[in-house]
Simulated scan of single mutants.
Amino acid sequence: MKHINLSAMGRQGGASALVILIMVLFFGSLLTLLIKVGPAYMDDYTIQEALQSLDGTEGLSQMGPAQILTLINKRLSVNSIRGFDTKNISVEKDGEIVVIAVDYEVRNNIFRNIDTVVHFQHSYEMRGK
C-alpha cells in the first residue's frame, strides 16, 4: 500500500488577512474610480452620437453657426446631457462643409483633494442634404 505524505498538505494555507485587506482596498479603489469616471465617458459617447447624427441633416449647410448650436443643444437635451456647456463647441463653415469641433474636460473629486481630469476632443466634418 502506498503511503501518502500529508505533511505538505498541512503547511498549505489560504490568503492571510493582510493579503485579503490589500485586495479589498485595491478592488475597492478600482470600483470607486470606475463609478466616478465612467459617467463622463458615457456622456461623451452620447455627445458623439448626437453630433454624428447631424450628418446629412436637411439644410445643415445653409444654417448659420447659431442655428447649428441650437440644433445641437436640442439633441443634447433630448439625450439628457444637462451639464454640458455649448461654449465648448465651435462651428465653422467652409462652403458646403460644416466643421464642428468639441473640446472640453470633466473634473471629478475622488477623495478629499484627489481629483480626476478627463479631456475630450473631437472634430466632425459634415454635409447637409
Rank of each mutant, 00 (worst) to 15 (best):
Y124T: 03
L18P: 00
E125F: 12
L51Y: 05
I4Y: 03
I110L: 14
E92L: 06
K93G: 01
P39R: 06
Y41F: 15
S7N: 09
T70G: 04
E125V: 10
R107F: 05
Q52L: 08
S80V: 04
L21S: 11
I100C: 03
K2T: 07
N73I: 14
V102Q: 05
A50W: 02
A40G: 11
S7H: 09
K74S: 01
A66L: 12
R112C: 14
S77E: 10
S90Q: 08
D103I: 06
I100Y: 03
L21Q: 04
L21R: 03
V106I: 08
N5T: 04
S53M: 13
L71F: 05
L18D: 00
L25R: 05
V19Y: 12
M126Q: 03
V19S: 14
S7M: 06
A8S: 06
Q121W: 00
T46L: 14
N5H: 04
E49N: 13
Q67P: 10
E58M: 07
E49D: 12
A15R: 09
S80L: 13
L51C: 02
R75A: 04
Y124D: 07
G13M: 11
P39L: 08
N109Q: 12
Y45C: 05
I89Y: 01
I72W: 02
L18M: 09
Q12L: 12
L69V: 02
L60A: 02
G38E: 05
A8E: 06
G13R: 15
I81G: 00
V37A: 10
Y104P: 01
Y104L: 11
V91A: 00
L33R: 01
A17M: 11
V106P: 00
K74N: 00
I4S: 00
I4C: 00
M1N: 08
F27G: 06
K129S: 10
T32I: 13
I100V: 15
A8K: 12
N73S: 15
L51I: 15
A8C: 04
A8F: 11
T86A: 08
R107Q: 14
L51E: 00
I114P: 03
I72M: 01
T86N: 03
G10S: 13
V117P: 00
S123C: 07
E92N: 13
R107N: 13
A101I: 11
K36R: 15
I47Y: 13
L54H: 05
D94G: 14
V78C: 02
K87G: 14
F111E: 00
L21M: 12
G83N: 13
L18K: 00
K87H: 11
R107G: 08
N109D: 10
V24T: 11
F84T: 12
